[in-house]
Design a protein around this nucleic acid. Structure first.
Lengths: 117, 117
DNA sequence: AGTAGTGTGTAGTATATGGTACACGCATGA
DNA sequence: TCATGCGTGTACCATATACTACACACTACT
């Protein structure tokens, strides 16, 4: 499970190839943490940061926050809030979708979005 | 937001009316915590316990664990794991269902369960 | 009078979380 | 050579989480 830090470093280096402001120091400054902290996170010497910091990283690096949070072993607070509002409903639904293939779930997403039901 | 403790106490007292083993002390023992701790939780002097302890309480009191967890401001780890496995998919779906009425979501649950799609 | 069981008050604790502060050595360019 | 920026090592820290341990006062029964 060395995913989060390695991925972060990889993406940052990619951005940096085009834009020198994606150094550890400058990115850390924009994100609002100490450079040494970000460095350690990237090398897996520290566990992934808080949701807030991860969201800021996703913004700066133009990544999907939910995906980045997932790599950090977290689920965003707003999703959790939605589930907590109607726990039985959402718990049942999610557990039933657990083993469904991606395309099936995706179809559901689209059906709901397009109001075809 | 005094929900969790009050609800816990209410339900425990209900059970106790029929079964004297639902005292703070005995329930605490079965659940695996100190009586004084459970007492404080019921009176809101301590924040809700861990997911593990909440699950044990739900078992003993015959409550839905997801609902009890929700009252404690939590979402069960297994649901989170399902979401983390396919974050984009589930995040999109859940956010789209956020403002849907119960019966609509419920219909979806049933459709998936019955394979009508 | 004594024993058992009840709820609760006070105090303390171990571990995790999410970082900060500062200094070091290296590279680059003026 | 000297300032600037770089990544990183070491040390420390504040707050939250999730409890335990123990004593106390009360009630009910025997």
């Amino acid at each position: 499970m060395k995913g989060f830090g390695d991925y972060l470093r990889k993406v940052r280096e990619q951005r940096r190839a085009e834009d020198a402001t994606f150094s550890v120091r400058q990115l850390a400054a924009r994100v609002g943490v100490e450079p040494s902290y970000l460095s350690k996170v990237e090398r897996g010497q520290q566990p992934p940061p808080s949701e807030k910091t991860i969201a800021a990283l996703a913004r700066e690096l133009d990544l999907d926050p939910d995906v980045l949070l997932a790599m950090a072993g977290k689920v965003s607070g707003d999703l959790q809030a939605i589930i907590r509002n109607r726990p039985k409903l959402f718990a049942d639904l999610i557990r039933q979708l657990k083993d469904m293939p991606d395309h099936a779930v995706l179809r559901l997403v689209r059906e709901v979005r397009d109001g075809e039901w």
